[in-house]
Design a protein around this nucleic acid. Structure first.
Lengths: 167, 167
DNA sequence: GTCTATAATGGGATAGAC
DNA sequence: GTCTATCCCATTATAGAC
């Protein structure tokens, strides 16, 4: 498919990548790499609430930027298997969830994180909202994400007096 | 894989189903069929709020009952393609979303429905919550779904409990 | 209904010429 | 770096005996 889309032969693709796995790794690396600085910033941030806000924003931005392709990387069975065999990705994903979860690792917090991550990646390419433009989608997604995670609805930079993350 | 799991040969499976597509259609029909009476009841219900409640409950019950298999039917690329070519399924899914949306078909309502449906089906098999038992998962999911759809947090009357989705 | 055997198709991958 | 040609192998599917 890649070769066809590029208008070259399969052999030309295999000149650059020895295996299909290498291709999947390379693409995933590029996508996750875009979140790396945001993740590191979030981990370094003292204010946990603010750290989650910032990270959430970046994740949503990227999901929208990659609208139409995120869910392939997240849900294609073959791709998932190849990624699962790659330790660095597992660690990165774990760090991502840890940063999103904050200190709370209870059932509810984990469920929130699981639902949120899937909801974001599927929603951006769902037929029901194919007609929604990026900016509208972003603001709705961010609003929804805050609701799902029990974050304060409006964020005012610096002073976070909002409710705690637990119910 | 099916033949191996059943301990018969592939030819034996092809005796019952002419093509892979027939198998996918049959399985999907069985799964969606379990929601048919709930959908019809919801469509007949005058109280829209109550209709959505009932349907939501059934959808969540079934997702939990099929924990570990729902997402295959929803996300496997080959299966999705085969289902997409089958008009009756498209119509059924449209009816499901229509019933969940209520009369509101604005951007926000559609986004809610899209996020919710994906969040439910992915969450039930997400590694982060693999250790959560069915009943706990159901109550959290229902609570979360109400929040996502802006439904009242506590539902007043009726026969709504953790009932399983038949068969 | 199940079996053995055998296509047919297509994806994943390699060899060697240019 | 790309090409043609080919290989390997799993999936999809059929034929015909029991």
């Amino acid at each position: 498919m890649i070769a066809d889309a590029m208008g070259v032969t399969k052999a030309a693709v295999y000149r650059q990548f020895k295996t299909k796995e290498e291709i999947v790794i390379a693409i995933t690396e590029r996508e996750l790499g875009m979140l790396e600085d945001a993740l590191e910033a979030a981990e370094a941030e003292d204010d946990r609430l603010r750290a989650r806000e910032v990270l959430l924003n970046r994740v949503i931005d990227q999901a929208i930027a990659r609208r139409g392709t995120v869910s392939v990387l997240q849900f294609d069975p073959v791709i998932i298997r190849l990624q699962a065999q790659h330790k660095p990705f597992q660690r990165f994903i774990e760090r991502l969830f840890a940063a999103l979860l904050g200190t709370d690792t209870g059932v509810e917090a984990r469920l929130h994180a699981a639902m949120l991550s899937s909801a974001i990646s599927v929603a951006v390419m769902h037929p029901l909202i194919a007609d929604v433009d990026d900016d509208t989608l972003r603001s709705h997604l961010m609003h929804m994400a805050r609701r799902m995670l029990n974050l304060p609805t409006q964020v005012s930079a610096g002073t976070m007096g909002g409710r705690s993350a637990a119910v």
